[in-house]
């Protein structure tokens, strides 16, 4: 299992993509709905994205397929990279706000017995 996942690249472009990658399907190895749905949402926040959807082709294979189609012959790979960057910014923002709330300590504390 682990030796196989080292051979499989994390991201592959599946056959059938347009040469300029304005429409392409990416297969992402070892990912699930967790990344698939989050990435789909962030890609749809990009106004240059015409269509975006993902699927888990088979529940016992650890792959997802992410389809991206762009307006104006733009590159879907650029859009994917932007979405990944934006998703990372989102994570930092949520983490910072959470840490701030925890630091101010304005919440109820209680003791729970095992």
């Amino acid at each position: 299992m682990s030796s196989q996942s080292q051979l499989t690249p994390k991201v592959q472009i599946m056959k059938g993509a347009t040469p300029n990658l304005s429409a392409a399907t990416y297969q992402i190895h070892d990912e699930s709905h967790t990344m698939g749905n989050a990435l789909r949402w962030m890609l749809l926040k990009n106004p240059h994205v015409e269509f975006c959807g993902y699927s888990v082709p088979h529940p016992s294979e650890p792959n997802i397929q992410l389809r991206i189609q762009m307006f104006d012959e733009r590159s879907s790979l650029e859009a994917l990279l932007k979405a990944l960057g934006d998703l990372d910014d989102l994570c930092v923002a949520v983490n910072d706000k959470y840490a701030e709330s925890l630091r101010t300590g304005e919440f109820e504390r209680w003791v729970e017995k095992s």
């Binding site: 690249p9 991201v11 592959q12 472009i13 059938g16 040469p19 990912e31 790979l77 960057g85």
Partner: peptide
């Protein structure tokens, strides 16, 4: 992880170049 792998696809993809498709 995904970003690193997707960035490596940039070199082979790009304008007019042949896309390495699995």
């Amino acid at each position: 992880d995904i970003k690193r792998s997707a960035e490596s696809l940039l070199d082979i993809g790009g304008d007019g170049g042949d896309v390495s498709m699995a």
